[in-house]
Every structure is written in C-alpha cells, then in structure tokens.
Nucleic acid binder design. Structure first.
Lengths: 210, 210
DNA sequence: CCGCATCCCCAAAGATACTG
DNA sequence: CAGTATCTTTGGGGATGCGG
C-alpha cells in the first residue's frame, strides 16, 4: 500500500525530490511558511487540490519529518499543521525558486492567496536604513504583523500586530497590484490607516521592478 | 492534447513548479548542469525513467524555455540537449535543494551517477587560498576537467583537461566514498596519478563533514 | 462545522516492443 | 541512436458521505 515511490538515487537533489517532488507538496509547505494552519485553511488556499491528496501529502510530509501535527491548547483545541525545524530550513529553496519563477508565465485566471503576497514581500524586501515601523496587513480576512527595524524586515508572521504604526487593508490582488506598480493604493482598493508615511515607505520597499 | 496542467496560481513558486514540478523534470535538468547531453546519455543516467516520459519532459522543458535542442556541427552532427540561459539560472535552486536534501534518507540500492558526484564537489567546495591546479577526473567513463585558482573552484565542465596536474580515475561510488571519509582513495579504488599533493588538496577541499 | 475516507474516472507514469 | 506505439498500473481531480 505505501508504495514509497523513490527515484532510487543517492544524489541529494534526488533525495529532496523524493520528499518534496509529489504534486502539491511544495505548495502545501509554502502555506505553512508563515505559521501553522488548519486542514481546512490549507484546502481553502489550494483550489484544485482535493481532500484525498491533501490528506495524503500531509501524512507523507509528516512521516518524512517536514511537517508536524500539533494540537493547540484549549480553548480552541484546533488541530494544526506546522513546519518542523527541517521544514523551516526550506526557506533558501523557496527564495531561490521564487526568484527564478518570477520569469515564468502567469497562468490565466490565476488565483492569488494572501500568504504568497506576504511571502513575496519578505523575499523581495529592499532594505533602506533609517526607519522603523510596525505594520498590520489585513488581506482577504487574514491578518499579518510586520516589523521593520532600521529599514530591514525583522519579523513577519500571521496574527494581529501590537500597537501598529499603520494598517493596510484590502485584497491580496489589490496589494499585489500596488507592488507591481499597476495601480496606486487608493485605486487598487487598498485602505491605508495610521501613519501614511510609514505605509508609503513600506510599499516602496516591497515594490517590484519591471 | 497538450493539457497544460497548471496550479493556476500567480505565486512565483507555483509558477516555477508549473515548469519544473512534473516527475523527473528536475533530474533531467540536473543532468544538463555540467553541459549538453544526448538523449541516450540522459536515459542511461536516469534509471527508471522510460523513453516516453523522457521525451515528454524534454519537449515540455524545451517549450517552456528551460532546455534547448541543439545539433552539433559535423562531423558528429549529434543532437544534444542543453540548458538555456534561464535554465542555467536554476543553479541557486539546485544549490539550496542539495544542501537541504543532504539530510534526507538515502534510498536502498541507490544509484549514483558521475554527474551528481562532480556537482556535489562544486556545491560543497571549501575554498582555501594559496593553491592552483588543473585536475582531470574520470568516473565510469565520463571525463571532467576542474580548475582551481587561488584555492577556489573556478571551472568545472565535462571533457578532458588540458595538461592536468593530476588525474583521478575510478567509479562514482569510489570518489563518493572518499568524500564522505568512508574509505581512503586507494582502498576505495580511486587511482591517483600525477601530483599527489594537488590531488590530496582537492580531495580535502571536497570532503564532506559528518 | 472540521477532518478526513470512499468511490469513480481520467490522466500520467512504468514497462516493453518496435521503427525511421 | 532517438525516439514513437502500445499496454498496464498508479496517482490525481471531483463529488459525496460519514464520524467526531
């Protein structure tokens, strides 16, 4: 039953693909990069992935030591999936893949979840010394906290920010449109509250070239 | 016909996986990292990969702009597959994946081709200033040329070396055993000719920790 | 509800044989 | 040598259902 399909090669690239090469595996891991998620949240962010395959991928990734199943302390007691330490060490792989994939074609009617937008901001953040900020970003109902210290992004995680200097609210697509320079924030429908100068600096630091 | 299976996401990681995510695709690209190869050479280095899937992957990778089909000038006029410039830009992805995959389990009866061994030497080469060398490595019938300048690996490609200081000859498994420290060169069956001090320095620079 | 398991169907991969 | 043709097996997409 558990066929353990492998490339049968000693090469570390092949062994990495033995772990991560099945369809959807990398995208499941990607959804956990900003923190633990529940099964149904994963399913919601991965349209086209059926429940059978999602459950299978999570089981395989757990077995291979990339993902860990956690039960949150009550109240709530929700079951969530989180990256192990080894799974978190995939960051350099994702960073390299994201830079390379920027030049790959965008499929028609492409879905864009909030996590990839925030991850892209982190991967392509341009540090410019001389400013500090705490910004809360709310996209499609998801809440994220960013911390900038001396112009460098020092923290980004899911969840509300404590005493933010500014808040950005809108859809994933809106923030992405602002990042690409397609639209200014107001035209994109991205609401800015709080310190508008801080928000502008942040949007500048994450603006994509081209 | 061409189904164009895609994740349908705008995320650059997902788009990269649209191009590279099909089974065997990354390993086909890996086999081209050290230079162009013919169809049958690819097939020989990728046991378990059938001719149908290999032809399909090559066609898809060519269509997406990762691989280019070349016809060598006569005499010979062999058809080879080579990486495009974009394909060559996958190097950081492979480097990150290889580092991560080092900690993944080695499948039983693992195959080990000569290319992965040389690629591993390049990825994990430890620079130590103060020496220069040209070394030819012959593994399983494949020939490679390495150039070290001031202790840094400045060139590695398939093909014979011009006027090498030393030559290593053996199997891929033998050189790998030496790199891991499992066996000394002679016990592993790795023949060293020419300047033994240079060969020793090279083997030191590519020795794997742990 | 959330977290899957079952079922059905098609598409992709493995194996083998064969051809320009 | 460089693939295509064919067949079988496996894995993935989609819908539904069921237990906690």
């Amino acid at each position: 039953m558990t066929s353990a399909r492998t490339y049968g090669q000693a090469c570390p690239v092949a062994r990495a693909m033995d772990v991560l090469g099945e369809r959807w595996a990398m995208l499941v891991v990607r959804e956990l990069r900003l923190g633990p998620r529940r099964y149904s949240d994963l399913a919601a962010q991965l349209p086209g992935l059926g429940p059978t395959v999602l459950a299978a991928r999570l089981r395989e990734l757990e077995r291979s030591g990339v993902v860990r199943r956690e039960t949150l302390p009550p109240p709530g007691a929700a079951r969530v999936y989180a990256l192990t330490e080894w799974g978190a060490e995939l960051e350099p792989v994702f960073a390299a893949l994201a830079r390379w994939g920027m030049r790959a074609p965008v499929p028609p009617d492409a879905h864009l979840g909030p996590d990839p937008v925030l991850l892209g901001m982190r991967t392509f953040f341009r540090s410019t010394p001389g400013w500090d900020a705490v910004v809360e970003v709310r996209l499609d109902g998801e809440v994220y906290a960013l911390r900038v210290e001396d112009g460098a992004l020092t923290d980004l995680h899911r969840g509300p920010a404590a005493d933010p200097d500014a808040t950005l609210t809108g859809t994933a697509g809106a923030l992405h449109a602002v990042r690409t320079g397609t639209l200014p924030p107001d035209a994109a429908g991205l609401a800015v509250t709080g310190d508008r100068a801080v928000a502008g600096r942040l949007l500048d630091a994450v603006r994509l070239p081209g």
